[in-house]
Design a protein around this nucleic acid. Structure first.
Length: 429
RNA sequence: GUGAGUGUAGCUCAGUCGGUUAGAGCACCAGAUUGUGGUUCUGGGGGUCGGGGGUUCGAAUCCCCUCACUCACCCCA
């Protein structure tokens, strides 16, 4: 860093995943992928960038996400946005690829970055990774239960037990509208007594008023209408079926009539997975059914259900629970090739590539360090082997193979070197 | 967008009532009779004390502004 040169940082709320961090991310990805594929969910990698209109249409014009949280820009006449969530793009891809006509039942999962222009704080970033699962093309309540079960198993596989499934139904169409009207009518007389926030929620999303944590507001909500009393027989049956399917798996559900997902596309089943001991940050997963999104985005009217799990909240949860065991940092390669003496640069380079071609991972010193210093580097870097090549070895066609943790060194014929290394690596040290 | 807290070396931090060359640990680099790593010892590089302005004989320290980060609210994974 020179003095008169300005420096650069990652943009606010965006952090780099350094090589040291990748193993942990990979572990979560592996667990997610394994649970998903076992249930026939296939990985999909949709666009990171979409037409802005897609999100306006699906997520909703009057949501916080669309109103103020999207990274949007214009190129030519096209308005684009970095995706703030995964479902819209996945459904768009599903329709665009023609699945609805040919093979409407599709189970997809995706792990990748999402972007929201928010003020960063603990557990919340502008670029964050989500594990998304979407079961498309069916209304079957067992799919609701299946994805909820999948989400719960994800956390349990990581060691987070006591996952609480909070569930609600938002109804669909008429019953939902009637419920909303009823809530509005119920609240209207007491709005003056509510907090400022509730008053703004009343305008933006009435149902959210019932979610207020303010005790004085809560008192005003006693006797508020419950959605379950408004559900059509069909939606009520669906909701009951989802819960009973989960019960059959031994998974309890908690009816949370205040649970209202913020995005416009949700219908019927909505749910959140919580780990109550985590307090304010107990919410680990959110999802639900979005039965008309495919239609709203230009496809046939097909049901769908899915969820999103944020990796950052998950990691935070593991940390707070003290069960985050970071995978050991793996060395860059198995072997560190040491040059014993001057003028061996080319020889070292050639030997390294020779070993690599036989399947051995090797790096060599590029700082012109002393032999001793190279050995230190090999040790500090966690390499299993140091390979020493000097004039003498070169002439005799051998290499010193040093097993660093074992502190043993043997002279090996160059032709046998790769095999000997691979052999030694095959048995646990 | 609103509010609060914090900015000293790559990292974690100390720095008194304002006082002269701003420190420690870790990390890094180099040595300890010249072809061999964990410990130890010695030495070394590295900071315009976030930036700008002000008060003062004198500012890392006090005041103002600004930026950044963190946390909280809204909302959310």
């Amino acid at each position: 860093m020179s003095k008169n040169q300005r420096t650069y940082r990652a943009p606010r709320g965006i952090r780099d995943l350094l090589p040291e961090d990748v193993a942990l991310a990979e572990r979560m990805e592996r667990i997610a992928a394994s649970l998903a594929t076992r249930r026939g969910f296939r990985e999909i990698r949709p666009a990171l960038l979409e037409e802005t209109a897609l999100f306006k249409r699906s997520v909703g014009e009057v949501t916080d996400i669309v109103e103020k949280e999207m990274f949007s820009f214009e190129r030519g006449k096209t308005h684009l946005s970095l995706r703030p969530e995964g479902t819209a793009g996945i459904v768009r891809a599903y329709i665009e690829a023609g699945y609805p006509r040919n093979r409407p039942i599709q189970r997809f999962f995706h792990i990748g970055p999402m972007f929201r222009y928010e003020r960063p704080q603990k557990g919340r970033e502008r670029m964050f990774t989500q594990f998304d699962v979407e079961a498309l093309g069916s209304m079957d309540p067992r799919l609701d239960a299946e994805v909820i079960q999948l989400a719960a198993l994800f956390f349990e596989s990581l060691g987070i037990d006591e996952i609480e499934v909070r569930i609600n139904s938002m109804g669909d169409g008429d019953d939902r509208d009637r419920y909303r009207d009823a809530v509005r009518a119920f609240l209207a007389p007491s709005m003056e007594a509510h907090c400022d926030l509730c008053r703004s929620r009343f305008e933006r999303n009435v149902l959210r008023v019932l979610d207020c944590k303010n005790p004085s507001c809560r008192e005003l909500h006693a006797g508020a209408p419950a959605i379950v009393d408004f559900l059509s027989p069909e939606n009520e049956a669906h909701f009951a079926a989802v819960r009973s399917s989960l019960e059959r798996l031994g998974r309890k559900t908690v009816l949370d009539s205040g649970l209202v997902r913020g995005l416009d596309y949700y219908t019927r089943t909505v749910f959140e997975l919580h780990h109550p001991p985590l307090g304010v940050r107990s919410a680990l997963c959110g999802g639900g059914r979005y039965d008309h999104l495919v239609r709203d985005l230009g496809g046939p009217d097909l049901g769908a259900v899915g969820f999103a799990i944020g990796f950052t909240p998950t990691l935070l949860a593991l940390e707070e629970l003290g069960i985050l065991d970071r995978p050991a940092i793996r060395p860059a390669a198995d072997c560190f090739l040491v040059a014993a003496g001057e003028g061996l640069d080319e020889e070292v380079f050639v030997l390294a590539e020779e070993l690599r071609s036989r399947g051995v991972s090797v790096v060599f010193d590029v700082e012109g360090k002393s032999l001793k210093s190279q050995m230190k580097t090999a040790n500090a870097g966690g390499f299993r082997f140091a390979l020493v090549l000097g004039e003498s070895e070169l002439e005799r066609g051998v290499v010193q193979l040093k097993d660093l943790p074992a502190r043993e060194q043997h002279e090996i014929a160059r032709e046998e070197l790769a095999d000997r290394i691979l052999e030694a690596l095959a048995v646990p040290s």
